[in-house]
């Protein structure tokens, strides 16, 4: 099992700004649909390793990226299928 920090935002603009800013600072970030258990929001949010949440939060604050919430998210990664689709 892996533990992640799910960072949610008010809108996708800030979610993408967060991804950009965090990647610029050497963090690995994935954008994912907002997990149902946290919000009924229809957009997406950022996922980072749980251990990096404080650092991520600090970086985002420094760059004026408004964070809504940071949630703890436990995942059984083995169960996740990793299909890759390409649209042409």
């Amino acid at each position: 099992m892996t533990v992640y920090a799910v960072i949610t935002f008010h809108n996708t603009h800030f979610a993408l700004k967060a991804k950009k800013v965090l990647e610029k600072n050497g963090k690995t970030v994935e954008t994912i649909p907002v997990p149902r258990e946290f919000s009924s929001e229809c957009g997406f949010c950022c996922k980072v390793p749980w251990d990096e949440r404080d650092m991520a939060d600090k970086i985002l604050r420094e760059h004026d990226v408004q964070v809504e919430h940071i949630y703890r998210w436990e995942r059984d990664d083995d169960k996740e299928r990793k299909n890759k689709f390409t649209f042409v």
């Binding site: 229809c42 997406f44 689709f85 649209f87």
Partner: peptide, 10 residues
């Protein structure tokens, strides 16, 4: 844009 969480919407 910004309505869904899937890869194309992103």
């Amino acid at each position: 844009p910004g309505r869904s969480g899937h890869s194309l919407s992103v």
